[in-house]
Write a protein that binds this DNA or RNA. Structure first.
Lengths: 193, 193
DNA sequence: TCCGATTTTGTAGTCGACTGTCAAAGAAGA
DNA sequence: TCTTCTTTGACAGTCGACTACAAAATCGGA
């Protein structure tokens, strides 16, 4: 997608950034968002507090999962790639399954970690609300090629609701496979329709 | 519901409390949550800042909707009151409509005001997340009398998703009627099923 | 190996949320 | 009216998010 990450400088920068965010999310989960200070995050990530603010303008930004768009794009593409006559819910179900199985094990583990943080820590969830809202729009857009406008949006909302519900249940048993749970839930929705 | 609010003391206390919260919500809407200081709220409500903190331990609490459970209970009851052979989605649709039309104009306006705050201000949304999650459970429980377990949960999740979607759209046009939008969206979902 | 550009860090300071305490003002009851 | 209890307000202070800035470390290229 991007340039092949040229210089050492840029690589180091990226590493620093992700390190800071990972430590932040870990600490948020361990001791709560409010109870975690930026100073503690800086210490954990072995950088100066001012460096944290350089990468993340506000504490809240530490909780924003910035790669949701690429995921949403992947889902949109996968939706387009589904067979033409598939029932709508199954289109989304198949697309989501395709995207998840296409992830490398490392990517998938990282994704689960961050999704867990999002679902578990209210402040993180709030920080990502905008993204969820826009993903919902993308999903609806992707479906609009297959069904009339309003129906596409309703379906997208229903699928998002069922998906979030499945993930919420997953948080109570984090050792199960969320992709599996999601697939199963969408299967049930498909039966309902 | 409560005791008839005997003494002058208690009445005055209650009035102070609601005055503070109303001014807070108004200011949040006017200038944003972060940009509003507790001092400004105190000034608007004509009390001392320390008095604000006596009623609301944290700034966030100023925006916590403390009556969501009674609403969820009302919906559960309304679900039970729907005719036996109604299709599941229409049960929920009818129950929600019944609850909203049952509200007095004042109550309804207040509810809209607070729902708008919840959907618009991330911090408030975070503070109320737990309540939304539990409402989802209540909805599923209420439907379980009418359909097998897993289906009830899936349906509840789908309805919650569609409902949140409708409310999210409403925030972009706050002069429209959210209850109307919600009813319409559920009607479309009903058509899909 | 040295230079210029960039990144990192420390420091000093602002602002607002929140706490604790104590004295003043008001209400309830005798 | 006098006493007692509660609510309120003022004040002083802590803590953490965030800013501005200049010094120091680091990197890339010549």
């Amino acid at each position: 997608m991007d340039q092949p990450a040229t210089g050492l400088r840029e690589r180091k920068k990226a590493r620093t950034r992700t390190a800071i965010q990972q430590h932040a999310l870990r600490l948020f989960k361990e001791r709560g968002y409010q109870a975690t200070t930026v100073e503690q995050i800086a210490e954990a990530a072995e950088v100066a507090p001012s460096t944290v603010f350089r990468y993340f303008p506000t504490k809240e930004d530490l909780a924003v999962l910035d790669d949701y768009y690429s995921l949403a794009d992947a889902v949109s593409a996968a939706v387009a790639a589904q067979p033409p006559d598939t029932p709508p819910v199954d289109v989304l179900r198949g697309a989501l399954r395709a995207v998840f199985t296409g992830l490398s094990p490392d990517d998938r583990a990282a994704r689960y970690e961050r999704d867990l943080a999002m679902l578990t820590i209210p402040e993180v969830w709030a920080a990502n609300l905008g993204m969820v809202a826009r993903s919902r729009g993308l999903l609806a857009d992707a479906m609009r090629a297959r069904m009339p406008g309003p129906a596409a949006r309703i379906l997208a909302d229903a699928v998002v609701g069922v998906g979030l519900g499945a993930l919420l249940d997953w948080t109570r048993d984090p050792h199960s496979d969320p992709a599996e749970a999601l697939d199963q839930a969408l299967g049930r929705l498909s039966d309902l329709l």
